[in-house]
């Protein structure tokens, strides 16, 4: 690597960065550009895509009310699951963060334990629990609270519930790290300046935990967008989201439409990620406004 002993920082910087850059370039950027190229074509019955360049896929997504319905539903699902996870995750993290390291580790292990089971198996687990003959319905029926079984599956609630159990740990871990990074002196300083516990939280703890909140909400939102298995198994076809349409397009060999829908999904992700960052301003913890 260069001139041995006199290798300067600049060289080291690029030498260390080159492998991951190359990796991302070859295995992410190039296929992504390729995918974009595909999305600019029509479908073909015999080839992966047609030969003429066209923007019709994007035009369809932008003008067809069916896609609008699905995009809005995707957005709504992502945001509401994100908010649910934020509220529950923050509360959990707030309780776990101040515990002694050992206890905290054990609590985290409990929290992460569900992630050790595959998404598919977990979704089937929820089916067994939420089904007509499932645990919830049998319990409710045995206590006489309901006469007939409740229809819990194939609904937005089922998807939200299923996804929350998967995504909550991401939120909790992100926020715990952020909370533990907050110097206790800031909280005592706020108290010394007459802030009651609520104001201390609003004015000091919440803004200082914003990096964790930002990474947690981003993770949850982005994972929700792509959580095909859970959405399909617990939501059924009536709860189709954008990612389900990508799958459907692929099953029908309409690769260009699938590619265009993927880019719609990507655009949605980027817009929401931008909004989250603009709203939470995690950079302010670094004192940059």
């Amino acid at each position: 690597m260069g001139s041995g002993l006199s290798m300067n920082r600049q060289t080291a910087f690029w030498a260390l960065l080159a492998p991951p850059l190359l990796f991302v370039g070859i295995f992410f950027v190039v296929p992504l550009l390729n995918l974009f190229w595909v999305s600019l074509h029509g479908a073909s019955s015999s080839e992966l895509f047609g030969s003429d360049l066209t923007g019709e896929n994007y035009y369809r997504i932008l003008t067809d009310s069916f896609y609008h319905t699905i995009i809005l539903r995707t957005l709504w699902a992502g945001l509401s699951i994100m908010l649910l996870c934020l509220v529950l995750g923050y509360a959990t993290a707030y309780v776990i963060a101040p515990l002694p390291p050992r206890t905290r580790l054990i609590m985290l292990l409990f929290l992460v334990a569900p992630l050790m089971v595959s998404n598919v198996i977990r979704a089937y687990g929820w089916i067994a629990i939420l089904g007509r003959q499932g645990v919830v319905n049998s319990m409710l029926r045995s206590t006489g609270l309901i006469d007939g079984p409740l229809l819990l599956l194939n609904s937005f609630e089922a998807v939200a519930f299923g996804l929350m159990t998967i995504l909550l740990p991401y939120m909790v871990v992100s926020i715990i790290n952020a909370l533990n990074a907050i110097d206790r002196q800031y909280i005592e300083a706020a108290q010394s300046l007459k802030a009651n516990p609520f104001r201390t939280f609003i004015e000091v703890v919440w803004p200082l935990s914003s990096p964790g909140v930002a990474s947690g909400t981003l993770l949850v939102f982005l994972l929700t967008l792509s959580a095909y298995v859970t959405i399909t198994l617990l939501g059924g076809p009536r709860m189709k989201l954008l990612v389900s349409l990508v799958f459907d397009a692929v099953s029908g060999f309409r690769w260009p439409l699938a590619a265009a829908l993927s880019f719609a999904l990507l655009a949605l992700a980027l817009v929401v990620a931008g909004l989250i960052l603009a709203l939470l301003r995690p950079g302010r913890v670094q004192g940059r406004g």
Binding site: V30, N34, L48, Y228, F247
Partner: peptide, 18 residues
């Protein structure tokens, strides 16, 4: 399942590029 679909797509793309 989603992933498999994606990998397949990328494999097709990467194959044709490389």
């Amino acid at each position: 399942m989603d992933r498999r679909q994606f990998v397949l797509g990328s494999a097709a793309a990467a194959g044709s590029v490389l």
